[in-house]
Amino acid sequence: MFRYCLKRLLISIPLLLGMALLTFLLMQKTTGSFYDQLKMDPLISPETIDRYIRLYQLDKPLLTQFLLWVRNLFRLEFGYSFYYNVPVVKIIAGRLGNTFILSFASFLLTWLVAIPLGICAALHRNRMIDRVIQMLSYVGLSTPSFLSAMLLLYLASRTGLLPLGGMHSARYEDMTALGRFLDLLRHLAIPAAALSIRSVGALQRIMRGNMLETLRQQYVLTARAKGLPESRVVYVHALRNAINPLITLLGYEFSALLSGAALVEIICNWPGLGTLMLTAVRSKDIYLVMASFMMGGVLFLVGNLFADILLARLDPRIRYEK
């Protein structure tokens, strides 16, 4: 198991390096004009500019610059945000947390809704409820997350049930711990739901397909021939096998969530990595842009690794193969 993890990590390193290279090259395209822009900005002191020129050795050959940049990455020295006037690392950490909360909430919501729906649809195949679920799923997975967000916000504004964006209410500071938690949930509801609608549609279909496939397997017949109660046949024998392939999707889903989350964050005014990146791009805050970009890649890798480990734990065939 440990060797398996190590192997996965080792494979990830060239991937990360590749991403770093891509980021670096992209940065090169803009830094030139960017620094000129900076020099003309009276608010930035010449000392700051000099400090960063020295730090990033902009006068040295490209390869050295790249290696230095990578070294700085490891030191969590991501550069300086000129828009917020603080080192990038300080802003990213907080926003990262918020994006994570949103992604996690949406992820949980997706799985808690899609899995039972998929099982239900498979068990009542081709009957009315299955058809209804299938139709809703289809619409759901074709709906872009930003549209879901807008529609939900519209409904909320009409009914006044939920807050219209943001992460905290005005009186957040005065609330008790429980109050704060509930307040967070209320603000989380719309963006998490908007993000989930698409994933639920997709995941439900996959779950249903897997269940149908699994229920046709020989070992399900054996389980029935043993006289086991139908619930055990479905939920222990069939489900355990049907769900395995879905675990591999976990990591990819996480990355997709990060991407999709950005847009929903922007629409719902949720202070996460996405809104940060947008502000950065709009204000040409280069280091912030690139740092967010790298962060996205790292999170994807982590998600993948997590999914692989989970799969190895759950499916003994894979565990022993490695």
Partner: peptide, 25 residues
């Protein structure tokens, strides 16, 4: 009632045990 008989009074052995056994248990 049939389930009480399956596995208990009448049981089955299948052709390909690799497929007939659940791989994750």
């Amino acid at each position: 009632s049939l389930r009480d008989i399956r596995g208990k009074e009448i049981s089955m052995v299948f052709q390909e045990p690799l497929n007939a056994f659940n791989p994750v248990l």
